[in-house]
Write a protein that binds this DNA or RNA. Sequence first.
DNA 1: CACGTAACGGTTGAG
DNA 2: GTCTCAACCGTTACG
Length: 446
Amino acid sequence: MKFTLGLGSRAWRVSWERPGEGGCALLGGARRISSPRPVRRGSRLARALPLCLSRGGGARALPDCAGPSPGRLGARQLAGPRAMEQTYGEVNQLGGVFVNGRPLPNAIRLRIVELAQLGIRPCDISRQLRVSHGCVSKILARYNETGSILPGAIGGSKPRVTTPNVVKHIRDYKQGDPGIFAWEIRDRLLADGVCDKYNVPSVSSISRILRNKIGSLGQPGPYEASKQPPPQPALPYNHIYQYPYPSPVSPTGAKMGSHHGVPGSASHVSIPRSWPSAHSVSNILGIRTFMEQTGALAGSEGAAYSPKMEDWAGVNRTAFPATPGVNGLEKPALDADIKYTQSASGLSAVGGFLPACAYPASNQHGVYSAPAGGYLAPGPPWSPAQGPPLAPPGAGVTVHGGELAAAMTFKHPSREVADRKPPSPGGKAPDGLSGLHGLPIPASTS
DNA sequence: CACGTAACGGTTGAG
DNA sequence: GTCTCAACCGTTACG
């Protein structure tokens, strides 16, 4: 099924089949769909979703309730089967759209923090952004703890054997003897005492390292290739995981393709794992340096790191303004931050206040491709009688798009690791948006 | 009513 | 190329 409105579950599942996933996504997230648990929150939900809940007849009182309301979804469905196949998502109780298992776009995360800093209560932020309060709580807690709005590293596992040191040695071996075999490297690691028999990388691991990391050093590997070509048409990564965010502004579905001039249309940020940042193989291997030397780094730093850069190459390249101050960035940081672009046009509701969040197709398939605005309620039902809900005029925390973009875009290496662990004792104090990421804006581009 | 958090099903990516 | 596993995700519901 592609679209389900589960009243009983209270969480509407709106899913567009994704290749290979069948309807699984439909069951994700709200596990208690058929939970025997007494629905004692019905009333509350009813408040939150006055009409969205209504079966079929529904949304009258909340005709345009933000997020894909049933009606909206309908519109999307009308967009055609193709679109249906390419996008999917779910709608939470508040009417917000989310992708189960995937982080909220950074724009939203940022917005949450911003609003919190403006004194908005978490519950209100939750309602306004249509993000579950649990999530708001989590994000704020995380921010308070780490000073970063970025989600944690998803997937993978911490290197158990391929430590930076090991990788370094592998690189050395490889550079010393380009024709060396993986098993030879393995032997040498043992012989040199770099590893012992218990933690020596397997041949396959070494091969992978050679292929994915080191390989790019000596040859115009995929990474380089992906960055060299001139802005190629943005890859349709969007289709892979298009967020069915019906742009509140343009519910018709025109929304997806390109957003208000945002190249690549991707308004998504895929959050990279951050733990590896501490010992980013690429960095360790000096790939970045290499890239810099080739001059390819500017504006496309990330390209040098992502093993799957080709997936989102075009976007980054075109959407990302060449900016100084990228040195020292590691892949993780870039993966995450590079996605932010200066263009604020991508954020309908946040626009002007936040830099657009261009989500290049990351190496992750789950990409929110719609503008963050899609998350936002066009007009909060609970609407505070104040002006633009999301763009508090002169709300103290106003930040220059560019300035913020800078903050969002580049992460200081030293903070990299910090993302995960509260690094800076004092650094977490959100000092204005410039520090929202927990990323001090590098004064000097170094 | 607001909020912290466990449980849950999901995604991801290194090994 | 496939599988495993442990990390993370956001939502839901409990307390």
